[in-house]
Amino acid sequence: MALFTRPDISTDVYIELMDEIKELHQQAENSVIALESSPDSVSHQASLYRAIHTIKGDLGIIGLTPLIPLIGAVENLLDDVRNQRFSFNASMGDIVFNLIDHVYNFVQSCKDSVRVEYPDQRYQRVIGLCQALDYKHIDTALRKVLVTLAPELVITADLNNKPTYTLNAQDNAEADLSFFESLITHAEQRSSYWQGRAQRQLKLALIINRHAGSPVDDRQLTAACFVHDFGMSFLPLSILHAKDALSDAQSNTLKTHVYLSAKLLENLPQWQKAKQMVLQHHERVDGEGYPNGLKQSDICDGAKILAIVDTFDAMTHERAHNHHLKRPYSRAHAEIKRLAGTQLCPYWVTVFNEAMTELIRVKRTL
């Protein structure tokens, strides 16, 4: 790690800079999402380029120089997109999201401390990869840039570590949970998309719940995490792996997995709270979900947590089966934030964001 001694700048200037970076982040975020649907849009390309260029200029004006070469390297990639040397894609969007995260965290650190550490060698490797980009194999080249900038995105064995939760020797709870876990572990082997999914979701669900003071019983939440998508294993892979929009008939078939999953817990009185979470995890707070069209106050907290971890896992691991590469947490933050008040509960989205911010901070200090 390298050390940077920040210039003697007033706190007000830092606050103004961070506010502007937030605004530019929003501009970049909107442009990235738009470009992934319309990669050739000249206006969105220009908007994204301006946002990154302005951030670089703002840092230069007040003397926060260490990240300027890194920002410049990514800026050059965006210029290549504008000059049609390669097409904007998801990896390029993920690089932008991570770059802005690094910038914001660096500025925040400079506001709070005179001397700030930053991973200069890693940044130099990223700059070198950007400068030597292999346009003939652009997807692979951009992924190398991304995983060098954000190594925490690489899927490693630690994701398979089992989360810890409190179990009491009561009503055979421990034996039941082990049984539920074994069921979903075998079910996940049916599809390459599912590997390790339940354990990832459980880990995050418990983190969110505990960040809020554990209003949901850990055991019930654990059972729900293991069971809620078990019914998916009884659906045709042609539906589960479909790349095109599902027909109405296929969509209705997919929705039956909620009842199939809940059926496992129907005759187990000690797991009725978990069953409720399973039945409700596809309900939406705006009433547009299924199977019963419940609204905010009618949906239990456990189901609201499950809805968030389900959404987050789909966003962050959508490419994992091909590239062993997760999506940036910042992207998921942005998209989940957009769903607050419609698909997802605003309160639990806030808890999720607070918990994930702390988790990311810890991971980046390791």
Rank of each mutant, 00 (worst) to 15 (best):
S330Y: 08
H257T: 03
F352P: 01
M232R: 14
D80Y: 13
L206Q: 06
L159P: 00
A169D: 14
V145G: 05
Q27I: 01
S297M: 06
K56L: 06
T311D: 13
L366I: 08
K243M: 07
E75I: 00
Y259S: 14
S37G: 13
A73P: 06
A314R: 14
Y259K: 14
W348T: 01
P269R: 12
F86E: 08
L64W: 08
A187I: 04
V103D: 11
C130I: 03
H186G: 04
S192I: 13
Q84A: 09
L202H: 03
A2D: 11
G196A: 08
V74H: 06
E117S: 13
T54W: 01
L254E: 08
Y347G: 00
E75M: 03
H257G: 02
L206M: 07
L153V: 06
I305Y: 03
T11A: 05
W348F: 04
Y49N: 09
A157T: 10
A198Y: 02
S91F: 07
T311Q: 14
Q280Y: 02
V13N: 12
H186I: 11
N76F: 04
R319H: 13
F226S: 04
D79K: 12
V81R: 08
H53D: 07
L177W: 03
K22D: 14
N76M: 07
T156M: 09
T140P: 00
P66D: 09
Q250H: 07
H186W: 06
G60A: 10
E117K: 12
S233N: 09
G302M: 06
P269H: 10
